[in-house]
Design a protein around this nucleic acid. Structure first.
Length: 677
DNA sequence: CATCGTATAGTTTTT
DNA sequence: CTATACGATG
């Protein structure tokens, strides 16, 4: 098990005498280290699997890790092992401990969209605020939560009137969530941290439970996540974290790469091991990555090397415009694949912004190249999925007013705005949820009889569904519910074409099927001794966290298609042949990042892109590009100048060298020429 | 309530 | 320029 590792990796696996930081460069086999260390802890060190937790950021990473651990140790030995995302860990924590925080069972989890809607409502109620401000406020609140700042602390520390406005919205937002018996994504980390900080008994229980903690992608942790790690580890110091500060590309989302350095201060006996041998890329690709990232300041110096040969030169291609750029990349893939007899899935096209995918798609279709575009509107953002999710949420959490409002008229139940207004006022006065208010006798005094009748009918029906769902076949109850409301019919009624409705209903069925799968899997595996939940609740909560729906993804993953994704989305992946397009000033160092002096993160983004490539790497840029309807001259990215000249093969570079320094007159001329293109 | 038209913005988004 | 979101109007 350990013999296949290099000496550094072996050391990282075997070191268990104290906290360990593994600085793992791109492609250095960090997942191998984590998975083998888990196996080592269980098989050699006598740890029970249920006392070990490994934490990742994505479901995908967690799934992969689980699979790889599964090949190393038996299912029996792995029993009780926790491998999950930070959010899933927080969710499991809250499933056990929510009562200590004053929440009821069956709580809801609001996704970003639900949260935005709630904030919008709050702003409107306060001072008819713009809906545009809502997302700003949402980001501010999220930033506070990621920084471990409570609503009260935010109010106390607000820096100006605008900040104060956000802080007050935060207070109201948090109150609303509590009233709805709901958490948002950030709460899944923040509230466990708050409870662990304030309740020594709970802290002791969890520290007793998790005796060895492993954290992947540590550079992506935010302040709150770091606090969670710190609390769980406690004095036992059973901790291994793996990370790479050069791959920190989520600082804008609250990630604190300095948490890597912070670790050395918080754990004086921290051992640091560097993994610098790369098992992925050719020498030239690696050298390019190293020289680019060398332009960033470093706390920990590291240099990737590999035993592979130099490989092919890195090609840098200048195209006249974005149309030519996309066409060039597509035809080149076509040509290259034919010549080398490879597969489409060996190729990835990476870019900075999603909008760049549009033209690529067009060209790929034109040349009939199969492709897979990751990102875009996610399955869970679809209206039909959100509708059904709202039904499910309301089913297990009657206090979820957000869900209630979403589906009360889907399909039409002739319950209008004024009825809902009356209901909301009534519920607000009594401090109860909207659904609970439907059953109140006093409702008749404030609303017309017909309206009250319709509300009752809905509430009674839902109560009936709930009773059925609590029986032994919840999935059947849910299917029955969808039949009751004739959701398929509603979709057909609202779709522009029958095919659209059919696709939407297929999504709904996939959702229900996914739910069933999770339920069965949770049944089969141990029930985690959580006791008081009836399975369906846990499964629905996990649904909100986008866990499951694996089959669809896998089918897509294995298809032979060219992969299209943003540089961000490419992190953690690798491809034999990588194309990065749009290496231009204002695009790859993005305009906003230049303005806010965030070049270093853009450089890391570039580094991440380069290190995705195994065999060949091609970089493209345009001399002119249409932006906001206007042709504009482009400057090659500064990152191109940072590449090792000897390993490059330029093509189409205009002029001799100072391609960038055009005179104003030349630019004007170029602009004029474009008018005639 | 639905549809049409206009106004407006226009990075990255693991959960 | 183009997608989207919101508002006005029938």
């Amino acid at each position: 098990m350990i013999s296949q590792l290099n000496p550094r990796q072996r050391e990282a696996v075997r070191y268990i005498d104290g906290p360990l930081l593994v600085l793992a460069g791109a492609g250095s086999g960090k997942t191998s280290v984590i998975t083998r260390k888990i196996a080592y802890l269980v098989e050699t060190c006598g740890y029970q699997a249920r006392h070990i937790a490994a934490v990742t950021f994505t479901n995908k990473a967690a799934r992969e890790m689980r699979e790889r651990v599964g090949t190393l140790i038996s299912g029996q030995a792995a029993r009780g092992l926790t491998i999950s995302t930070f959010h899933n860990l927080g969710l499991n924590f809250l499933r056990r401990e929510h009562k200590k925080l004053g929440y009821k069972a069956g709580f809801s989890i609001f996704d970003a969209e639900d949260a935005l809607g709630l904030i919008r409502d709050i702003l409107i109620a306060e001072h008819g605020g713009d809906s545009d401000q809502a997302s700003v406020v949402q980001n501010r609140i999220s930033a506070w939560k990621n920084d471990m700042v409570t609503a009260e602390q935010a109010v106390a520390g607000a820096t100006g009137p605008a900040d104060m406005l956000c802080a007050q919205a935060y207070v109201r937002y948090q109150r609303a969530l509590r009233a709805y018996n709901a958490f948002d994504f950030d709460d899944l980390i923040l509230l466990p941290v708050q409870l662990l900080q304030s309740d020594p008994d709970t802290l002791a229980e969890w520290q007793q439970r998790i005796r060895y903690l492993l954290v992947d992608e540590y550079q992506d942790t935010n302040t709150t996540q770091y606090a969670l790690v710190n609390l769980l580890v406690g004095s036992r110091q059973g901790l291994t974290v793996v990370g790479d500060d050069d791959q920190s590309i989520y600082a804008w989302r609250g990630a604190r790469p300095e948490n890597l350095a912070q670790l050395a201060q918080d754990f004086p006996h921290l051992k640091v091991i560097k993994l610098e041998q790369n098992y992925r890329s050719t020498g030239r690709i690696l050298r390019a990555a190293n020289t680019v990232i060398a332009n960033n300041p470093h706390v920990f110096e590291k240099a990737l090397w590999s035993e592979y040969g130099p490989g092919e030169p890195i090609r840098v291609i200048c195209c006249p415009n974005e149309d030519a750029e996309c066409e060039r990349v597509v035809t080149e893939i076509l040509d290259h694949r034919l010549r080398r007899g490879g597969q489409y899935r060996d190729y990835a096209i990476l870019y900075r912004g999603n909008h760049q995918a549009r033209l690529l798609e067009l060209k790929l279709q034109q040349f009939q190249v199969p492709y897979r575009l990751s990102g875009g509107t996610s399955f869970f953002a679809r209206n039909e999925v959100k509708d059904v999710m709202a039904y499910l949420r309301l089913l297990i959490n009657p206090d979820d007013d957000s869900a209630f409002l979403r589906i009360i008229n889907v399909p039409r139940r002739k319950i209008g705005a004024s009825t809902l207004e009356g209901l909301a006022t009534y519920a607000g006065e009594r401090g109860i949820g909207l659904l609970a208010a439907c059953d109140e006798l006093g409702l008749q005094t404030v609303l017309p009889e017909a309206a009250v009748g319709r509300l009752r009918e809905f509430a009674d029906w839902l109560a009936q569904v709930r009773r059925r769902a609590q029986g032994d076949d919840p999935i059947d109850a849910i299917r029955g519910m969808l039949t009751d409301i004739d959701y398929e019919g509603w979709l057909h009624q609202n779709a522009s074409a029958p095919a659209v409705a059919e696709r939407r209903f297929a999504n709904v069925l996939a959702l229900v099927e996914g739910l069933q799968k999770t339920l069965e899997r949770d049944d089969a595996s141990e029930r985690d001794s959580t006791g008081n939940d009836n399975g369906i609740e846990a499964a629905i909560a996990r649904l909100v966290l986008r866990d499951l729906m694996e089959r669809q993804e896998e089918e897509d993953d294995s298809a032979d298609k060219v992969q299209l994704m943003t540089l961000h989305a490419s992190k953690g992946l690798e491809f034999p042949h990588v194309y990065i397009i749009g290496l231009e000033e204002d695009l790859l160092p993005h305009r906003n990042s230049i303005d806010t002096d965030n070049i270093e993160e853009e450089r890391r983004l570039c580094y991440v892109g380069i290190t995705r490539a195994r065999q060949t790497l091609t970089l493209t840029y345009c001399s002119r590009r249409k932006q906001y309807g206007e042709m504009q001259a482009c400057e090659p990215s500064r990152f191109l100048a940072e590449l090792p000249e000897d390993d490059l093969e330029w093509e189409g570079r205009t002029g001799t060298d100072p391609a960038a320094s055009k005179t104003r007159a030349q630019e004007t001329l170029a602009g004029l020429r474009n008018l005639f293109d």
